[in-house]
Design a protein around this nucleic acid. Structure first.
Lengths: 240, 240
DNA sequence: TAGTGGTCTAGACCACGTG
DNA sequence: ACGTGGTCTAGACCACTAC
């Protein structure tokens, strides 16, 4: 017999309870001694499980207050998934303008990114992001329709937090990981127009797919970034 | 009084012992019970400190064998700091050709990256990296001369492992973190020539600085990547 | 003051790798 | 068989937050 360690069983149970919404986003989970009694393990085992879930962005600890289910609408995570900075290395959050919102069928590449079949029903959204009034990023988002039933342009335009906050609060999808694939390309005519570039111009093309805790893809986007005055920042190593 | 936790003191002591080469790269450090006795703490405290050093890439645990000081020349870390993949998402390590090796003075930007003064003595190396025989990456490296006394082109050309392995074995600098700043640019004439591109071509320009554990910069490089058939891969979140 | 997470102990037993 | 790291216990005390 090869039984998994107790702390992994506890961890899975905690994930299930969060997914089944026994504890809601932004709420505190029970204290560590209570959880220890509930699962019949020692506090150390609870701490081991919780520590891993904190590292996986599903829980947040706050000393003296408690441990909370990650909420994308609160300050946590607000810019964790945004790696674009200005030339000084400072992060600024852009303003979003919706250019287009439509129902569509996935092309082959989009479907592959989302782990679905070509032609699956989807929602496609085009956004223009500005920093200091100047357009710098052109986004094309694809959402699988079956995971976002009832989504409307109004919800997109009138959300009060991040897009990931919208996904979490209205559809129960908590994004904990993004894969980004970057490339430098010569901007096409439409991109030049939208980002006010004069051809020939080089732009960064980012294909980015967002995953929930169970590695289910819930969004993919193709992002064109004018990097004349912006940089994509990546830090490798030293997680402590 | 605000004394730091014991495990942080232990961690700092371990770092010092590694830096002073009491334990050499690739060697095993003493077992956890031995360390516990040596520092007068319990095993749990040792484990806490070691766990953080593993996360910071300074130590590597191997169940049943021991805990080892990270070595850049062994398989560990071989590709941890290399984020470039082909279109399928598979990582291939390129072959390096040295184009130029010279002593030079740092320009302002290079000096700033390395935390030194403009005009400081440095070594500048230009490399061409090939995948499957085709030139795809053009590198310009800058090393601060005071941290690499006695470095020669021969050492560069005849090393048997990675560059970071060379830095570690010959100069005692263990790289544990890299900051990378990415930008899409139109390739200049020289880059087009070296990478066999026809203008106008877009390339990825990566400014990357490598740091040791104490946040001391030991290398910075400007890297031009032909991303027609390559991608820069970045994964955000989910460290567990 | 009461409750939370953060640190720490002094062991025990298990799973794995090596001789 | 032996030594290693991996898991786990059943508490204790400290630091921080809120009331």
């Amino acid at each position: 017999m090869n039984t998994p360690p107790r702390y992994l069983e506890v961890k899975q149970s905690l994930v299930d309870l969060i997914r089944e919404r026994e504890w809601k986003f932004g709420q505190a989970i029970p204290s560590e001694p209570l959880l220890a009694r509930r699962f019949g393990v020692s506090i150390g085992t609870i701490r081991h499980a919780v520590t891993e879930l904190v590292a996986e962005n599903l829980l947040v600890r706050e000393q003296g207050r408690g441990t909370f289910v990650t909420s994308h609408t609160r300050d946590y995570m607000l810019d964790v998934f945004f790696n674009i900075v200005n030339e000084d290395g400072h992060k600024q959050l852009p303003e979003t303008e919706i250019l287009d919102f439509m129902h569509a069928r996935m092309d082959t590449k989009t479907a592959a990114e989302l782990g679905m079949r070509t032609g699956s029903a989807a929602v496609r959204v085009q956004n223009l992001l500005r920093l200091g009034g100047k357009p710098v990023i052109l986004d094309e988002l694809w959402l699988p329709a079956d995971k976002f039933k009832g989504i409307t342009e109004y919800m997109f335009a009138h959300r009060d937090g991040t897009l990931f906050g919208l996904y979490q609060q209205n559809f129960g999808h908590t994004v904990v990981r993004c894969n980004e694939s970057l490339q430098a390309v010569v901007a096409d005519a439409r991109t030049c127009e939208r980002l006010q570039l004069t051809a020939p111009a080089a732009v960064m093309r980012i294909v980015r797919t967002a995953f929930t805790h169970k590695d289910v893809a819930v969004e993919t986007r193709v992002r064109m970034v004018d990097t004349r005055f912006l940089r994509y920042l990546s830090i490798i190593g030293k997680r402590g």
